[in-house]
Amino acid sequence: MPPKVNVVSLVSVGRHPQSGRSRRAEQDGRAVELGLKLSKKSLTVVHAGDSQEPVLRQYAGMGLDSLTVLPQAADGDALPVLVEFLKNSKAQVVLTGVRAESGESSGMLPYLLAEQLGWPLVPRVAEILTIKEGAAEVLLALPRGQRRSVIVSLPFIATVDNAAAEARQTAFGPGLRADLKVLNVESVTDDAMATWQISAAKPRPKRLKVVKAKTAADRMKAATAKPVGGGGKVMKNETAAEKAQAIFDLLLEEKVVR
């Protein structure tokens, strides 16, 4: 791994799913972890928001010397200040979580950054394997535990999936001692958000099982019938090789054997 890769990890304030207290965000912590793994010296961790937030010390406690804060009001829009910051920095790799745990948590920020900076975006990264000659080989986390290898040119933005390496433990004392660089930037208000009505989440209604049978006999049949696939092909008299070939063809057709 060449040491001269400038990595920027963007962090936000997380929310504990049970207690609702603010915490180090799960995926953002992983983004910092990945950044530390890539290059500990040239990693910049950036937060756009409240500079007094105690959660930032939890990120700093992962072994960071300093942390950059772009101060924003609570109803501020993080996008313009981050675009400005990244344009002026020499960042080659920008790591974020997939979705924030507070605010709108739309997951749009990395996409908007990529669009405005004109950089490529790699979604749901599990690992960055190599960075050399202006290109990086990254592993994407696919559903069902699968991985895909993608080559992307530098500079790029990557969102870090939950499949990436877990964030290391945070140390309290070093976190407090870390340097908080608060930059002097304008706070931009998010106007569209002001028109929204935000309330505590209502539990979603459970989908009811609707009985569509019109007669009692149909209902009886639906209630007592065994689950039968129906229309399945049964092979009895062929040779073992033919039968195995039929199974293998199905596996190939379903693309589980590649």
Binding site: G229, G232, K233, V234, A240, K243, A244, I247
Partner: peptide, 20 residues
């Protein structure tokens, strides 16, 4: 299981697994 299956093969498992 044969009733539920989309493709069912009636044979001893060892021979089929060998071919597979």
């Amino acid at each position: 299981m044969v009733k539920r299956a989309d493709l069912a093969v009636i044979e001893d498992s060892e021979a089929i697994l060998d071919a597979l």
